[in-house]
Design a protein around this nucleic acid. Structure first.
Lengths: 166, 166
DNA sequence: TGTATTGCGGATAAAATATATCCGGAATAA
DNA sequence: TTATTCCGGATATATTTTATCCGCAATACA
């Protein structure tokens, strides 16, 4: 019961895209290089973000990825759901219906209490992640970075960012 | 990123044990039969509950499992942590340290914002499950059960429960 | 029109985890 | 002593995660 690392990569990648000047983009390979992760697998996570409408992909020579909407409108839950899926963590197999004393269908109108409790707890989890906008992650990262590193990041972006047609 | 079914089984098993008269127990095989799940694998989950101090195991002829403490003092989180482990769902691999613009150790005093946000969300999840005592699950289950089924369950327990020495 | 670039989706494979079974041994009551 | 019951480890299978590769489509530019 662990979260895949694709979520972590996608979150970091989204934070980097939030640093781009409006209208600019970053190719997937460059993004993977910046984060120091395998490009082929990172590409899969970026595709998931694209399918979910979090980033916009532009094919072709000066193409790449950019945020599909403002960073303030992208939450950590959006990213998690895009990569990991939005389905419930707890899967009820209706154990109550099993065995010598199993419940009849008539006795099972809704989800059992155990499933209901897990789904409620997952809603708390989801809400907590939904309350974290991408802007917060970017701002927090900027706070601990030295001025020297910020400059190097800016230079790297200038060097690798592309300018796709609108 | 899914919860194993062992958690579901352990929760149901604990709820059954809560129905036992004080001082009585149920062998693991009987419990598995009652829930209609594979006995050998159910045994693993019961061992986990035992290691976590949620149930007490009694070996020998009239042995079996019983709750180690009152049902009101056992939460759904206790059961989940016992079976699935209490470690974090999100595992930070310190991506911020990677790549051409990776942060220096001095710039990483605490966990990064992404990891912190996930850990905070997981705390909400944990707290929600910790707020659900076993008594609540038992009471909820009793509400939807017919009188006829409750009687059958009582008879089944009378037939299979054992009376270990204190 | 051609060519280089870039993302998309599917096929594939290796590694890790979840699911499941079995067995020898220890503990226990009768 | 015997039958029972739990414990822990070894093992096997299935599923998921992690990762790579390739052909194709889209795009910009010469």
């Amino acid at each position: 019961m662990k979260i895949g690392k694709g979520v972590e990569w996608a979150a970091h990648a989204s934070a980097v895209l939030a640093l781009l000047p409006p209208g600019w983009a970053l190719p997937g390979d460059a993004l993977a290089q910046f984060l120091g992760v395998p490009a082929a697998y990172m590409a899969k996570q970026l595709q998931a973000l694209s399918r979910a409408g979090i980033v916009t992909a532009q094919r072709g020579v000066a193409g790449g990825y950019r945020l599909a909407r403002e960073a303030a409108d992208v939450s950590l839950w959006d990213i998690t759901a895009a990569v990991e899926g939005a389905g419930p963590l707890f899967r009820c197999t209706e154990v109550r219906r099993n065995g010598p004393c199993g419940a009849s269908p008539a006795e099972c109108p809704g989800p059992c209490n155990i499933a209901a409790a897990f789904h409620s707890a997952e809603a708390s989890y989801r809400d907590a992640l939904a309350a974290v906008p991408l802007t917060e992650l970017v701002a927090g990262g900027a706070k601990t970075a030295t001025a020297e590193r910020k400059q190097r990041i800016g230079e790297w972006i200038d060097e690798h960012a592309t300018r796709p047609a609108e």
